[in-house]
Nucleic acid binder design. Structure first.
Length: 645
RNA sequence: GCCGAUGUAGCUCAGUGGUAGAGCGCUUCCUUGGUAAGGAAGAGGUCACGAGUUCAAUCCUCGUCAUUGGCUCCA
């Protein structure tokens, strides 16, 4: 007999070798029908795997993330089985579950799969699912595993097996498909009731662009058809928030082939929005003791040789510009930091001057691979809300915390409550990717982790995500379609001060090396605006809305009064326009709602007589009559409240 | 950069081997209307670009460019 403890801390005795599924059946048939897998101690197991020792047990269903993961992992096998049946000889790479569904990387040899093949694969999957195939787990020796996949001719599996050690290799067999797999899997394929293959794409084997490209098929499955429908509907809704779509509809930005790819053109409404964000941050930074600096868009190649950017990225940059007579080479600036280092170095500094915080909305240009360009989130020319803090080593943590405060203030003002804080450290396995001494790296990485802990931030650590000159703390948010983008970043850097030989005179009258903190709360204006658009679905907070109010005259007779109202608002620093079209009020309201203008001001005979406006707030409806003064005050109050300053 | 898909009016999209269509938007006219679509008429297109096949190509083929879903990359 073995003792099984449950999440509610009860302990029950069972026969040795009992399975989680059998335990579930002993509790209730209904529960058993929903069990996908089980957490045995800290590992997720097949619900059908015998338990031979005392253990804690949690039955996992569709309501548990691990349950979903099990189902999706099994769905990947199901898809592989379908593909193998339809395209004999297909070879398989890896097929994991992911955040929303699963994928499998497949080499179908000469037969290139395209989107049009997905439907047939889906159908075959549905047919197999109905067969309620079970997943049979089998321990296998490395030799046998190599033999099996060797005979099958699947070099990808052979490569994976070669990296495993004997004793940890298992196969899972379901229907006609056998896969190298750690498991776990759902009891049978019958749990998979709704299947959708979402997209197909090339993916390099093992993520290495020098190796073969396999075909990756993404899909998702559900235990109920209605859940799939809901998911697809959610995807459709998310697409409506896409900043590329809204950017076009709301006339925020555009691109032109003639200007060049990845070079955004900000339209008046977008430019106004961006300017307001810049003004907001400038105000916050002024209070926090930042000093403005301005630097040119190009810099001598030698500047970047000194900084190390040339060695690292010179080959992947726009080609240098050269002067006609002297033949000197200049790069479009890919970073502001070297320029700021030169500003710091223009005169000697005392420890009493530190910290010095140079801030600049600096436009930079980077050559990004054409396939990487994506709306405003990934472009070739963008403006960083950059600043570099030069400080003494013992000021690092205080300064770092000061930057976190600014970032949190911004996120709060814009209601970004779901962000990921990522501590990006160096990858000890690839030291060649970084410049500077290990000692300095250790110091910097330790400082960031300490700050994260002291500030009680919930953070994840990613190795290998550091910049080449230093570790960083990144703040990431997801876009409408769940893609993660880095916004704010704070980076500790001991290296550039050394390369630029920056110093300050300490209290001991000796020269010391300052530390540099690179930071950008928005990251880039382009990316930030993109994410902001998706976050609020184009419905900007009042203080950012390009048009805050639209005046809707009931008929042409009230045009003059509308202009008077407009002038009043303009004098009150409120952005308003008049819908002068010869349309009915209902139509004007509908259009204003669709254009996401926060306030609609309806003016007719009544309003003209009493010098008022009838206020309709977008999304809320009629608020009644306001005098012009009341309206201006209400708008200004709302602006201030939203900004939180 | 790599693999796949897409490219028709300002926008969203139909469509066909025989010189092109809708809705919205725009212009004009009628209407002067009170909280999410009043009516009519009209303008607007090198069907991304370049070659090829064909009596004839927006449609078929190839190439280029751009957009897009991923992969790789991201100072």
């Amino acid at each position: 007999m073995i003792n099984i403890s449950f999440p509610d801390n009860t302990v029950r005795q069972y026969e040795t070798g009992i399975t989680a599924l059998e335990i579930a059946q002993s509790i209730s048939e209904g529960l058993a029908r929903n069990v996908l897998s089980a957490k045995v101690d800290s590992e997720v197991w097949d619900a059908t795997r015998p338990i031979n020792h005392d253990a804690s047990l949690k039955l996992l269903t569709w309501n548990d993330p691990e349950g979903k993961a099990t189902m999706w992992h099994s769905s990947a096998h199901l898809m592989a089985e379908a593909v193998e049946q339809l395209y004999p000889g297909a070879k398989f790479g890896i097929g994991p579950d992911i955040e929303n569904g699963f994928y499998y990387d497949i080499d179908t040899g000469d037969k290139m799969l395209t989107e049009s093949d997905l439907l047939e694969i889906e159908k075959r999957m549905a047919a197999i699912a109905k067969e309620k195939q079970t997943f049979k787990r089998e321990d296998i020796s490395k030799e046998d595993a190599l033999n099996y996949f060797g005979e099958k001719g699947d070099e990808y599996k052979l490569e994976l097996i070669s990296e495993l050690t004997d004793g940890e290799i298992t196969l899972y067999k379901s229907g006609t498909f056998t896969d190298l797999c750690r498991g776990p899997h759902i009891p049978n394929t019958g749990f998979i009731k709704a299947i959708k293959l979402l997209s197909i794409a090339g993916a390099y084997w093992r993520g290495d662009e020098n190796r073969k490209q396999l075909t990756r098929i993404y899909g998702i499955t559900f235990p109920k058809k209605t859940e799939l429908d809901e998911y697809l509907h959610m995807l459709e809704e998310a697409k409506k928030r896409d900043h590329r779509k809204l950017g076009k509809e709301l006339e925020l930005f555009t691109f032109s082939q003639r200007v060049g790819l990845g070079l955004p053109l900000w339209l008046p409404k977008g430019a106004q929005l961006r300017e307001r964000l810049e003004q907001y941050l400038k105000k916050v930074q002024k209070e926090a003791g930042y000093l403005p600096v301005i630097t040119p868009h190009i810099g001598n190649v030698n500047l970047y040789k000194t900084s190390g950017h040339f060695d690292k990225y010179g080959a992947d940059s726009f080609r240098p510009i050269s002067t006609p007579v002297e033949g000197e080479a200049f790069f479009l600036k890919p970073m502001n930091c070297p320029h700021h280092c030169e500003i710091y170095g223009h005169k000697p500094h005392s420890y009493k001057d530190l910290p010095i915080r140079y801030a600049e909305f600096g436009t930079v240009y980077r050559y990004e691979q054409s396939g990487e360009l994506h709306g405003l989130t990934r472009v070739r020319g963008f403006t960083q809300d950059d600043a570099h803090i030069f400080c003494t080593p013992d000021q690092i943590k205080t300064e770092f915390k000061g930057v976190i405060k600014i970032i949190m203030q911004i996120f709060k003002a814009l209601d970004f409550n779901q962000f990921i804080t990522q501590v990006s450290l160096s990858d000890p396995k690839t030291p060649e990717k970084y410049i500077g001494s290990r000692e300095n790296w250790d110091k910097a990485e330790r400082a960031i982790i300490e700050v994260a802990q002291e500030e009680n931030l919930e953070y994840v650590v990613e190795y290998g995500e550091a910049a080449f000159y230093g570790p960083k703390m990144d703040f990431m948010v997801k876009d409408a379609l769940g893609r993660k983008w880095q916004l704010g970043t704070i980076q500790v850097d001991y290296n550039l001060p050394e390369r630029f030989d920056l110093t300050y005179i300490g209290s001991d009258n000796e020269k010391h090396r300052p530390v540099m903190i690179h930071r950008a709360p928005f990251g880039s204006m382009e990316r930030f605006v993109a994410v902001l658009v998706e976050h609020c679905a184009g419905d900007f907070p009042l203080w950012l809305a390009p048009d805050q109010a639209i005046i809707l005259p009931i008929s042409e007779k009230y045009q003059k009064y509308a202009e008077k109202v407009s002038q009043f608002l303009k004098n009150s620093d409120i952005r308003a326009l008049i819908d002068e079209r010869n349309e009915k009020t209902g139509k004007k309201i509908r259009d204003a709602e669709l254009k996401k203008v926060p306030y609609m001001l309806i003016v007719g005979e009544r309003e003209e007589q009493e010098g008022s406006v009838s206020v309709r707030k977008r999304g809320q409806g009629d608020l009644g009559a306001f005098s012009l003064e009341q309206l201006a005050k209400a708008i200004h109050d709302e602006e201030e409240r939203l900004q939180g300053i």
